[in-house]
């Protein structure tokens, strides 16, 4: 962001911050186009007025409905303090909002943590080759804003002979694997003692029963104290209105994961809550072409991740900080 960039908000918007037009509504198009339509009606007079009479009440009804939803959202409770009934209502409201704003039917779940499950992740550093397919899969799966280039996963290229993330390079743009390097992916470590959670002044982020650290996007006030507190740089802020076009929208959503995000709040990796609570793999694990990512239930003695923890030389990053990450690394 340069010193004078604020002068040209259009430039930032050009790449697609505008809300995509709902394809179904009669008005269609952007604000400017609808204004010109109205002007045309003025000129055409009588006959056209009938046409407006048909379309205007429809759109204003939509606007009213959206205003009502906005009002209700303003008074919405912290997700943690809601009953299951209230959570169901909130999720329905969000689905309705998506219908009105996007003209799209999304499925927003609020699946609670499953009993006897504690999620963990292990990365095989011997097989990771730095393709970053996990990064791309994550962006698509989680409806990450493209313009801000938000990414939850960061892959570091590190020279062999060193073991220091700080000496690594995350912005590599050449063909991989590059000779003499190894690759180390990082994302939210879902610490058992997460430093980001106690610092939140409003309790908008917490650790769920299954060990996933989540954010209530509707409760966060955007102070960014958690972003400063995270030793793994795993948290991201929405510096502007995030947007994703309908054709790229993943409609399989969860309240705590990939539903439409908002300007001015935090977000982060959530181990694909909408998938993993239904027994599926997170998108990054599924996308990895080398099988370097092993995700599973740490409480299940027969799981692959348990086998790795018991049979490999496993370590975690910044263990001296006692954050107890559930994100492990090992080598063959």
């Amino acid at each position: 962001m340069g010193f004078f960039d604020w002068l040209f908000p259009a430039r930032r918007k050009a790449a697609g911050t505008e809300q995509p037009a709902p394809p179904s509504t009669a008005g269609g198009g952007s604000y400017n186009r609808s204004v010109s339509r109205r002007d045309v009606f003025k000129i055409l007079g009588g006959a056209a007025l009938t046409a407006t009479a048909c379309s205007t009440p429809f759109s204003s009804k939509e606007e009213k409905e959206l205003a009502r939803i906005g009002w209700e959202e303003f008074f919405q409770k912290n997700y943690r303090e809601m009953t299951q009934e209230e959570r169901d209502q909130v999720v329905q409201r969000l689905e309705q909002k998506a219908r009105l704003k996007r003209g799209v039917n999304v499925n927003i779940k609020n699946t609670p943590p499953q009993d006897g499950v504690l999620f963990g992740y292990a990365i095989n550093l011997s097989t990771c080759r730095g393709y970053r397919d996990c990064v791309k899969a994550c962006m698509l799966e989680n409806n990450l804003d493209e313009e801000m280039a938000m990414q939850y996963i960061r892959v570091f290229e590190i020279k062999k002979g060193k073991f220091d993330v700080e000496a690594g390079e995350a912005q590599y743009g050449h063909e991989v694997p590059a000779e003499g390097n190894f690759y180390l992916p990082m994302q939210c470590m879902h610490c058992e003692e997460p430093p980001c959670v106690p610092v939140c002044p409003v309790g908008a982020t917490w650790k769920e029963e299954d060990g996933i650290v989540v954010v209530d996007y509707n409760w966060c006030i955007g102070c960014r104290y958690c972003e400063a507190a995270c030793p793994y740089w795993a948290r991201r802020f929405n510096w502007q209105e995030p947007s994703i076009p309908n054709e790229k929208l993943n409609r399989d959503q969860h309240y705590l994961s990939n539903r439409d995000r908002q300007k001015g709040v935090m977000e982060k990796c959530h181990f694909c809550v909408h998938r993993t609570r239904e027994g599926r793999q997170p998108a990054c694990a599924e996308a990895c072409p080398t099988g370097a990512r092993i995700f599973g239930n740490l409480l299940d003695p027969d799981s692959e991740i348990r086998w790795i923890l018991e049979n490999k030389k496993v370590f975690r990053l910044k263990e001296e900080l006692k954050t107890e990450p559930k994100f492990f690394y090992f080598m063959d």
């Binding site: 962001m1 010193f3 960039d5 604020w6 908000p9 930032r12 801000m148 955007g222 972003e227 740089w233 948290r235 991201r236 802020f237 929405n238 510096w239 502007q240 209105e241 300007k263 001015g264």
Partner: peptide
């Protein structure tokens, strides 16, 4: 516009 108009970033 959001805090994007400031010089701050992640």
């Amino acid at each position: 516009e959001g805090l994007a108009i400031t010089g701050m970033h992640d």
